[in-house]
């Protein structure tokens, strides 16, 4: 059974923020609840005040700015909305593809993109893909708003750059250029993934102009495999190059032995998944293969 708590229903970000400040460590933001209620049920954490931000209007909307070619995804957008949204299918099919694999159909119906990122569970699917995508997160409080690149937001296990009283408002995604594509690969034995890899490649006349490779689930937070990205830029996406880049990403990972598998096994998974993701991203960028 859950411990005793009170639920607050703010009408605005400002009101939610002042509630969070007022109750400090006693308070938590309540969104989809799929992560929060689990840890509260397990008594790993207890909050006497849940601030239900679902009573704030407009936080679950997806919009597209055709001028800037950016998608704005409200923090309360559920995984299911992202899986099925026609805007996402049209402009960011890779995001829909990843979202369709989050948890299960019930988690996707309740869980939100913002809750997922703010909870910063190390096995987050969206974190890995959005890190490769260089998503920008807009956060706000009762005093100010600011934008944080996702690489500076995800600090570690259950740790983000959110300051006391700050709330994630939306996720900004720059659409990939026409000659770029991506792929998301993961391996799971439990409900949450054991290893996740996202690759984005931009190809110009058969040569990799830009490469972004993110690895998640195997360490405290998702990370970018910078050395692998450097190796890929300016080269043709040949099998040998992809194998070396995948090897580099695997070496860059710092996994630990746990229930998901041994560190050695996870390194192996990262190598295999990175090669698969890079290969698929390259084929998609050359329009050989479409998104699922």
């Amino acid at each position: 059974m859950l411990g005793i708590f009170q639920i607050h229903e703010p009408d605005s970000i400002e009101e939610a923020s002042s509630l969070l400040k007022e109750y400090g460590y006693e308070a938590a933001v309540y969104a989809g609840g799929t992560e929060l209620l689990l840890v509260m049920k397990e008594k790993l954490a207890h909050y006497s005040h849940l601030v239900n931000i679902k009573t704030i209007p407009g936080l679950d909307e997806i919009s597209f700015d055709p001028e800037a070619r950016t998608l704005r995804i409200g923090a309360l957008t559920t995984h299911r909305q992202l899986e099925h949204s026609s805007l996402i299918a049209e402009h960011a099919p890779l995001l829909a593809e990843m979202e369709s694999t989050v948890g299960n159909v019930r988690v996707r119906a309740m869980g939100t993109i913002g809750g997922n990122l703010c909870f910063a569970e190390p096995h987050s699917d969206p974190a890995t893909l959005l890190l490769a995508w260089d998503a920008v997160l807009e956060v706000g409080s009762d005093e100010a708003r600011r934008r944080i690149p996702i690489a500076d937001f995800l600090l570690g296990m259950f740790e983000t750059a959110l300051q006391p009283g700050e709330i994630l408002i939306d996720v900004h995604l720059q659409l990939l250029p026409a000659n770029a594509a991506g792929a998301y690969r993961k391996f799971s034995t439990h409900e949450r993934p054991t290893a996740t890899v996202a690759a984005l490649l931009q190809l110009e006349q058969g040569v990799i102009a830009d490469a972004r490779l993110a690895v998640g689930s195997v360490g405290p937070a998702a990370f970018r495999a910078k050395e692998a990205e450097e190796m890929l830029r300016g080269q043709q996406p040949q099998e040998e190059l992809i194998a070396s880049a995948a090897e580099s990403a695997s070496r860059a990972a710092d996994p630990v032995d746990d229930l998901h598998g041994s560190a050695e096994y996870k390194r192996h998974l990262v190598r295999v998944l990175a090669a698969e993701a890079l290969d698929l991203a390259a084929r998609r960028a050359q329009a050989e293969v479409d998104y699922d």
Partner: peptide
């Protein structure tokens, strides 16, 4: 929509 009643508040 399907939800897990075990982890959803009645609220």
């Amino acid at each position: 929509l399907p939800v897990s009643a075990c982890c959803t508040l009645a609220y």
